[in-house]
Amino acid sequence: MLDLIIIGAGPAGITAAVYAARRNMSILVVTKDIGGQAAISGDVENYTGYQFITGPELAIKFQAHMSKYNIEIKENEEIIKIEKEGDLIRVTSDKGSYQAKTIIVASGKRSKKLNVPGEKEFKNRGLTYCATCDGPLFAQKEVAVIGGGNSSLDAAIQLMNIAKKVYIVNINSVVEGDAIMQEKLHGNDKVIILNNSQVEAVLGDKMVNGLRIKREGKQETLAVQGIFVEIGLIPNSEFAKILDRNEFGEIKINFHNQTNISGFFAAGDVTDVPEKQIIIACGEGSKACLSVFKYLATHKI
């Protein structure tokens, strides 16, 4: 019987796996991808020991660290359900079913969707959730960035050097991102901020050719070829319905990364821990694993 199943292989999951391997626990990692959000982050300048490293580079280092140990990893699996089965834990994915004594949920967060007509059809056809990745393809084109927070401003800053015109479509009456980022945008005549604007539909033929919005109650169409969705993140916790979650869907944990159910632990961005940072997720992953270790030592399963 496995000691531990770890869901997710971002900073929290990988760190938990490394700690578990070093304690000779028998573990399995079940995950959709490796690296999590760290892999799609831009520049990282606050991870101690690295004055500067890019997200992908750091993610590759994490992965290399994990692969030093003989850890079984099931990649490309979507978790459907976790449940209690007697004293054990059952994890069901779209590809298999696994059992262990304990679990650490470290499934992170993902980009929020717009949920408007056209979004699905035009994904990768002009609509993208990764400005860092796809931005360069929109050279000299007109684009819209949806959102008014830091990630949206970050995308707009990247794009203003590439695109011909950048609309920032913000649902609120003011843009909320950091002052330092707003400063970078101000005075750039390529950037147009549209406040009080709700996205209604993504338009296009084969590729995106427009965005329909309602601005201050009036419908308008922006003739854009690119749409960058940056409206925040939601936790990947739908499969963890048996666990207590807060109003945002984050799994509630205590100092020891324990959830409300015995044997179920959680770590990183999927939890209600304050502040979502790579370094915090790593710390939380290690803390969760050490809690599991103590739990196994004191519970006969």
């Binding site: 690296g35 892999a39 992908p56 993610a59 590759i60 990764c130 990745c133 931005g135």
Partner: peptide, 14 residues
């Protein structure tokens, strides 16, 4: 690929 795309780097490394 684009130089800024992390998954591109991962594909190439893979």
């Amino acid at each position: 690929s684009t130089p800024t795309c992390p998954y591109c780097t991962m594909v190439k490394e893979y």
